[in-house]
Amino acid sequence: MLSEKIRVGQVVKSLSGRETGRLFFVVKVIDPQYVLISDGKKRKLDRPKLKKVKHLKVYKFFNEEVKNKIASDKITDAFLRAELTKSKNNF
């Protein structure tokens, strides 16, 4: 199943909806079909977007630092934006 390879801290690209083409980090895996995504700019951490996995392009890039900060609740929107900007160079 597709969602088995998705985990917190992974970079994904939206394939449908208003945010088509935008990059996000997965901030929570709800179940095999749904995840919460955030980019720290338009979709902030206090209101992440619930998205179906089938509407996302999953990149192999995974950010361990983002995962650790999300787990410890010490993450900010500014940090998320900065890491996403740095991550764009890895594709």
Rank of each mutant, 00 (worst) to 15 (best):
K41E: 12
R18N: 15
A78F: 06
L84M: 12
R18K: 14
K67M: 08
I30Y: 03
S38H: 02
V53W: 02
A82E: 15
T20K: 13
L50S: 10
G21W: 07
E83A: 10
K57R: 13
S72M: 05
K42I: 14
K13A: 01
E64G: 02
L45W: 07
S87M: 12
S38V: 06
S87C: 13
V12K: 02
I6R: 02
P48W: 01
I6H: 00
T20S: 05
V58E: 03
P48Y: 01
E64C: 03
L15G: 01
T76D: 05
V29P: 02
M1R: 07
K74Y: 03
K51C: 08
F91N: 10
F25A: 05
S14G: 11
I70Y: 01
F79I: 12
A71G: 10
K41G: 05
G40F: 06
L80M: 14
K5G: 03
N68L: 14
K86R: 15
K86C: 06
D77N: 15
T76H: 05
M1W: 02
K69E: 12
K60N: 05
S3H: 12
N89Y: 08
K52A: 04
K51N: 00
S14H: 00
I30P: 01
K69S: 08
T85S: 07
I75Q: 08
P32N: 14
R81L: 07
L45F: 03
K28E: 15
K51P: 06
E65H: 09
G17H: 06
K69I: 06
K42C: 01
V27D: 03
S3K: 11
L50T: 14
L2T: 09
D39M: 07
F91S: 13
A71H: 03
I30L: 12
L36Y: 06
S3T: 11
K69M: 09
K44W: 00
K67E: 15
V35H: 00
E19C: 01
V66Y: 02
R7I: 05
S3V: 10
L15T: 09
V35F: 01
D73S: 13
N63Q: 10
E19P: 00
V11T: 08
R47M: 09
V11L: 06
V29H: 01
V8C: 02
L45K: 10
S3I: 11
N89Q: 13
R7A: 09
R22K: 15
D46E: 13
V58S: 08
Y59E: 07
E83P: 06
I75L: 13
G9T: 12
R7Q: 14
V8T: 13
S3G: 09
L56S: 09
L80F: 04
D77P: 04
V12W: 00
K44P: 05
K86I: 11
L45A: 09
T85H: 08
Q33D: 09
K69Y: 10
K57H: 06
L15C: 07
V58A: 12
K60H: 08
P48F: 00
L50E: 06
Y59F: 15
D73A: 11
G17S: 07
H55E: 12
K86G: 03
V29G: 01
F25Q: 04
I75C: 07
Q33A: 09
R43W: 04
V12H: 00
